[in-house]
Design a protein around this nucleic acid. Structure first.
Lengths: 136, 136
DNA sequence: TAGTACATATTACAACTGTAACATTTTGGG
DNA sequence: CCCAAAATGTTACAGTTGTAATATGTACTA
């Protein structure tokens, strides 16, 4: 299992646009991000370069410009981040976290339904537990 | 609304023991953490000091030793971290994240039940019911 | 073919982090 | 009352991150 490189918060922004569509030239990435962020071109270039160094992003020289594309999947990174997150909170604190998500971000009903589905699908209920176990 | 200081990953370990029981002397904290981690005393001392600087931890000189105690609650920090996490993933990706949690079976059945409850609290509203949008 | 326009690469620099070592202060014991 | 032991405080140092500026390479155009 390859370990995903550690991607910083700012770098995530770049990854997200690449995950969204790739390959993209540096300029396209810059264009996509200025507006969403307040970063200067050069800053974004730096982020891209660091991601290349970290092997999170690959590139291929097309003509005068390079084409950049992700070398790691969003799922992989998500997984890694989630683990780190979990470690941080000692596992105990997922509930308040989800609560915060639900409260603050106004998840759409559809999304909530989806989440509920996930929970139902994998619930790993103890053998003879009742379907709905009311605790506290 | 005070903003919670930014607490690094290593510092979280310290906060967690303080949230668990406080006040504690530095030595107690050290003892609690060596064993769980591979850190040297001095390292842990540094972390404590940094947390004091950041005003995440307060202390009171008791006798020769100081008593340290958290100045921020776990809930506050959790909230802040969750927000950062959300921003990072652009909100879109809560489902895979939760899926990852569930899959890895880091979640007990009880916890899952709790989560489901949280979700239930916020959905299935009549179409024209006002949704409670509270943000302070 | 030389210059220029635009792309990529190198360098900068301070704050934060991980990980400590070394220095100084305080206090209980003799 | 002074000293050593133990506690706290100061300094270190390299790697990461945020945020760029500057330098260098290169492909068309005149």
């Amino acid at each position: 299992m390859k370990k995903t490189p550690r991607i910083s918060e700012a770098e995530w922004e770049v990854m997200r646009v690449l995950w969204n569509t790739s390959p993209m030239t540096a300029n396209d990435i810059v264009e996509e991000l200025t507006g969403k962020t307040h970063w200067k071109r050069e800053t974004i270039r730096t982020l891209i370069n660091r991601l290349v160094q970290k092997k999170a992003v690959g590139f291929e020289k097309k003509s005068r410009q390079y084409d950049y594309f992700p070398l790691v999947t969003e799922a992989e990174c998500l997984r890694a981040e989630s683990e780190s997150f979990l470690r941080r909170f000692g596992g105990r604190s997922i509930e308040p976290m989800l609560a915060a998500f639900v409260e603050e971000k106004q998840l759409s009903a559809a999304k909530i339904a989806k989440l509920r589905q996930i929970l139902n699908g994998n619930t790993t209920r103890p053998k003879n537990a009742k379907r709905r176990k009311r605790l506290q």
